[in-house]
């Protein structure tokens, strides 16, 4: 598959105008667990031009029940594993990696991105990222997630808009601390809300 063939296919599916918006987008995926691994794959498939993937962790056997990694990738950094997977799906997505923790101190890593996906695990880090980006990069869109654990109804997963540029996907209630675990489909539902919201923002549809 050549780059031209892939671009033509995307343009046939999405239309030239829409595809040019996707191609010129630069989206950060902060955290590559159950949410981020699914968000990254969806956005790459949709033809988003540039992805910045951020995670400090390595692929562990306990990740395989819900995260988009394979046994052959055990022990690899999630950033390296995900770029390998994405290059097999679509080698023409420009993927940048940062293997480390994203904090308030190195937030400038995301300075070039238009849209920031918060795909962290811990509630405090989620709030830290959302509040820091809102304060220091108020022009950026943030697509966060809160509440996708357990086997509760999938219909509870929604997208809420807060302020002018913050979207929060999830049921807002169910904490992994209470439910004990996460299941692939419900996490994927939430990740799908996030990826869908990113594409909607790129299309100029700003309601939740």
């Amino acid at each position: 598959m050549t780059e031209q063939e892939w671009q033509q296919t995307l343009e046939q599916r999405h239309g030239t105008d829409l595809q040019s918006k996707f191609s010129s987008a630069h989206v950060a995926v902060c955290g590559l667990g159950g949410l981020g691994s699914n968000v990254a794959i969806s956005l790459a498939r949709a033809g988003v031009g540039t992805l910045l993937l951020i995670d400090f962790d390595s692929v562990d056997i306990s990740n395989l029940h819900r995260q988009q990694y394979k046994t052959s990738q055990l022990g690899m950094y999630k950033t390296e594993a995900m770029i390998q997977t994405l290059s097999e799906i679509t080698p023409y997505c420009n993927v940048r990696l940062y293997t480390g923790k994203l904090t308030k101190e190195n937030l400038s890593l995301i300075a070039d991105c238009n849209i920031i996906c918060e795909c962290f695990d811990h509630a405090e880090y989620k709030a830290m990222l959302v509040n820091s980006v809102s304060e220091y990069y108020p022009e950026k869109y943030i697509v966060a997630a809160s509440g996708m654990s357990g086997l509760h109804s999938g219909n509870l997963i929604q997208t809420q808009k807060l302020g002018k540029r913050l979207y929060i996907c999830g049921d807002g209630i169910h904490d992994v601390k209470d439910d004990g675990t996460l299941f692939a489909p419900r996490v994927m539902l939430c990740a799908a809300h996030q990826a869908n919201t990113v594409l909607r923002i790129l299309t100029g549809k700003f309601d939740a």
């Binding site: 709030a127 509440g147 654990s149 807060l162």
Partner: peptide
Amino acid sequence: IEIVSFVGGG
């Protein structure tokens, strides 16, 4: 005022 309290999981 809208207050969102994040919960864990991802």
